[in-house]
Amino acid sequence: MRWVMPAETAPQERIWMAFPPGGYALGDTSEEAHAARSCWAAVANAAVEFEPVTMIVAPGDEEVAAQYLSPEVEVRTAPLDDAWMRDIGPTFVVGKADDGGTRLGAVDWVFNGWGAQDWASWGKDSLIGTAVAGLAGAERVGSKLVNEGGAIHVDGEGTVLVTETVQLDPHRNPGLSKADVEAELARTIGATHVIWLPRGLARDAERFGTRGHVDIVATIPRPGTLLVHRQNNPEHPDFAITAEIIEFLHTTRDAAGRAWNIIEVTAPETTTDAEGWVDYSYINHLVLNGGVIACSFDDPMDATAQQILADAYPGRRVVSVDARELYARGGGIHCITQQQPLLP
Rank of each mutant, 00 (worst) to 15 (best):
Gly224Ala: 10
Ala303Met: 05
Val278Asn: 05
Thr266Ile: 11
Ala205Leu: 09
Arg207Trp: 10
Glu275Ala: 15
Leu288Asn: 10
Asp299Met: 10
Gly291Lys: 07
Ala205Tyr: 00
Leu226Val: 12
Ala274Cys: 00
Tyr282Cys: 05
Leu249Thr: 13
Leu249Ala: 09
Arg211Ser: 13
Asn289Met: 11
Arg211Cys: 04
Arg230Trp: 03
Asn233Pro: 07
Val217Ala: 06
Ile283Thr: 04
Ala259Leu: 11
Ala240Gln: 12
Leu197Tyr: 02
Asn261Tyr: 01
Ile293Leu: 12
Gly209Lys: 07
Arg230Phe: 05
Glu247Cys: 11
Asn284Ala: 05
Val217Asn: 03
Val217Gln: 03
Val292Asn: 08
Thr219Met: 07
Ala205Asp: 14
Arg230Asn: 07
Ala240Arg: 11
Asn261Pro: 02
Gly290Met: 13
Leu226Met: 11
Ile216Val: 10
Pro234Ala: 07
Arg222Gly: 02
Val217Leu: 01
Asn233Met: 08
Val265Pro: 00
Tyr280Asp: 08
Arg253Asp: 05
Ala240Trp: 02
Ala243Arg: 15
Asp273Phe: 02
Ser296Phe: 01
Thr219Tyr: 03
Thr225Glu: 15
Ile283Asp: 00
Val287Ala: 11
Trp277Phe: 12
Leu288Trp: 04
Arg211Ile: 00
Ser281Pro: 06
Pro234Thr: 14
Glu275Gly: 05
Thr219Phe: 03
Glu269Asp: 14
Ile283Tyr: 00
Asn284Val: 06
Pro268Asn: 06
Pro221Gln: 06
Thr266Asp: 15
Ala218Ser: 09
Ile293Glu: 10
Met301Glu: 14
Asp238Thr: 11
Ala255Glu: 01
Glu275Cys: 03
Phe248Asn: 05
Arg199Met: 12
Pro237Ala: 07
Glu247Val: 03
Asn233Cys: 11
Gly276Ala: 09
Thr251Glu: 13
Gly257His: 12
Glu206Arg: 14
Thr271Met: 09
Leu201Cys: 04
Glu244Trp: 02
Val265Met: 10
Asp238Trp: 03
Gly200Phe: 02
Ile245Ser: 02
Ile216Asp: 13
Leu286Cys: 09
Asp279Leu: 07
Ile283Ala: 00
Pro223Ile: 06
Ile262Cys: 03
Trp196Ile: 03
Gly212Gln: 01
Cys295Lys: 04
Tyr280Gly: 08
Arg199Gln: 15
His250Met: 09
Trp277Glu: 10
Tyr280Glu: 04
Phe239Tyr: 15
Glu269Phe: 07
Arg258Cys: 11
Ile262Tyr: 04
Asp254Gly: 11
Val265Gln: 02
Leu227Ile: 10
Pro300Ile: 04
Val278Leu: 00
Ala259Asn: 14
Val292Arg: 06
Ile293Arg: 09
Ala240Glu: 13
Arg258Trp: 09
Thr266Arg: 15
Gly257Lys: 12
Arg253Ala: 12
His229Cys: 10
Leu226Gln: 10
Thr210His: 03
Arg203Thr: 12
Gln231Ile: 00
Ile216Arg: 00
Ile216Ala: 12
Thr242His: 03
Arg203Lys: 15
Leu286Ile: 05
Cys295Glu: 13
Glu269Cys: 08
Ala256Cys: 02
His213Cys: 03
Val228Leu: 08
Ala259Val: 11
Trp260Thr: 12
Asp279Ala: 14
His250Phe: 08
Tyr282Glu: 02
Asp204Ile: 00
Gly290Tyr: 08
Glu244Ala: 14
Leu201Glu: 04
